[in-house]
Design a protein around this nucleic acid. Structure first.
Lengths: 201, 201
DNA sequence: ATTTGGTTTAACCATTTAGTTAAAAATGAT
DNA sequence: ATCATTTTTAACTAAATGGTTAAACCAAAT
């Protein structure tokens, strides 16, 4: 059995450096230093920067995607799903505020290679969700809305505030703790906002 | 009078390359090629990469910020402001879908230097907007909401879909034209969504 | 015709950086 | 003790890249 500590130390370090600097901005030396090992070992395990980046990105996605889309495979009611989503996102992203921008920016820079690693289809069943939305609409609980619109609106409200954190703090003159307080309120206020928006006429 | 064509050709080219590659990923040679001039002239005008980036970023912000926040200094009614916002964002960002991610990612990477260039305070008067929100709430037209929450929700819904464009298309299996169609609908659907969410009980 | 400022050419330097290598050292299992 | 695996050391290469330089070129203004 192979001991994985060094390999995983490297992956952790890579994730943290890539998170801050991006692929082009990251330095192999810095990753080695962060991992507490040497550059030679980086290449011993991962060959080159690209493949280290890919591995690190992959392990990252594997960790966060279920957390983000797991709700959709549960049996929760529609309203509970929305509330759970709100809590999940805010809690996780509070600990990793740089995550959204790093993911978005690397995907924008090289969409094909990175998107192939994401098979959200396995995590979120669009037709089931659409079915649930249609059900709720038929029962008069919510307005009619497409999966696309529902998803993008929900994720936008949950994720964007973290992506825009520095600029938002600047505009609002929010300190870090003020921002965190604001974000904590969003755990419930975003789902309320969404459910209100969906209230039938 | 100095002829500015070369300088502005460089700024344009720099903007386009930085947009795609970011500061670290951009190459001075590529910028020169894109501008149709040579590397020596780049340095003749802008000294070094950093200062070219700063200039280019500055000229970019100067161009887009008024477009994004100009509404707030108008005399439009609250409802009209929301609708105008929706139209402005969608129309402009449809032509520059990579803009949000590039701005967010560079700001995340070096917040201080770049945020100093943004004095949104001059463009958007928070207290006036808060006043208007309070007015509307007092008149029973909308629920009570803070500027912070209103702004972040609105901007999130308008900007994030472009930031997440590739990943969203992937999840939804949307072609470029399907995405554009979807986005066009948002010109009105986002403002409707917001206004619904704000409808009093 | 000369001057001036913008522009090109092309070679060049210095530095950073990814990646390599080979040997030695440490570690741990048998 | 021996052996295989992991890790370090340290020096090295090759390439990319930002930046410089100096001389030549060109166009327009005087």
């Amino acid at each position: 059995m192979v001991d994985e500590t060094s390999k995983s130390k490297i992956l952790l370090a890579a994730r943290s450096v890539f998170l801050r600097k991006g692929l082009a901005g990251a330095r192999m030396q810095e990753i080695a230093d962060t991992a507490g090992i040497n550059k030679a070992l980086l290449h011993y395990y991962f060959g080159n920067k690209e493949s280290l980046f890919t591995s690190s990105f992959q392990s990252l996605l594997k960790e966060i995607l279920p957390r983000f889309f797991g709700v959709f495979t549960t049996n929760l009611s529609f309203e509970e799903k929305v509330h759970t989503l709100g809590r999940n996102y805010v809690e996780f992203l509070s600990d990793h505020p740089q995550l959204p921008v790093m993911i978005l920016s690397e995907i924008q820079r090289e969409p094909k290679r990175l998107l192939d690693q994401i098979q959200i289809g396995e995590l979120i069943d669009l037709s089931t969700l659409q079915h649930q939305l249609d059900e709720e609409a038929a029962q008069g609980n919510i307005r009619k809305i497409s999966v696309a619109e529902f998803l993008i609106n929900t994720i936008s409200l949950l994720v964007f505030p973290f992506a825009a954190k520095p600029i938002f703090q600047n505009v609002m003159s929010f300190s870090d703790s003020q921002f965190q307080k604001f974000i904590d309120q969003r755990k419930s206020s975003v789902s309320d906002f969404i459910l209100n928006a969906l209230k039938p006429h």
